[in-house]
């Protein structure tokens, strides 16, 4: 039963208020993209056992989407940030590194 803080309304939201939305920071590929790019965009997922960046919606609250950095093996939450972010805030990256010194940042995750 997760708790995530909605960065939009500031509520510490119970999982029952939230709707999960899958991996974050995936670039949309539309017409003109290659088959491989389009396949990767729609289906290839990181699925790490460890630090994961993902989308959530405060569905039964303010209705806003937001992003979260969370560990899939311990369910620790490193932080949440607005859905409009194209990069991960430094504070969250620092916290991840502090908690998991061995973590290797995937290329697609951009620091702010």
């Amino acid at each position: 039963m997760l708790i995530l803080t909605c960065p939009c309304c500031g509520i510490k939201a119970d999982e029952t208020e939230l709707a999960p939305g899958g991996e974050a920071h995936i670039k949309r590929h539309g017409p003109g993209s290659s088959d491989a790019e389009f396949e990767a965009y729609l289906f290839t997922r990181a699925n790490p056992r460890g630090v994961h960046f993902e989308r959530w919606r405060h569905a039964y609250g303010c209705g806003k989407w937001f992003l979260a950095a969370r560990a899939t093996d311990t369910l620790e939450v490193f932080g949440t940030y607005p859905a409009t972010s194209t990069a991960v805030p430094d504070a969250i990256l620092s916290r991840i590194r502090a908690r998991r010194p061995d973590w290797i940042k995937p290329d697609r995750i951009k620091p702010a």
């Binding site: 039963m1 997760l2 999982e15 029952t16 709707a19 999960p20 991996e23 699925n47 056992r49 994961h52 993902e54 959530w56 899939t72 093996d73 311990t74 369910l75």
Partner: peptide, 14 residues
């Protein structure tokens, strides 16, 4: 199934 990535073999009570 739960909707979020999870390796803990524990789910949410709701």
């Amino acid at each position: 199934a739960d909707g979020y990535n999870n390796y803990t073999q524990r789910g949410s009570f709701h």
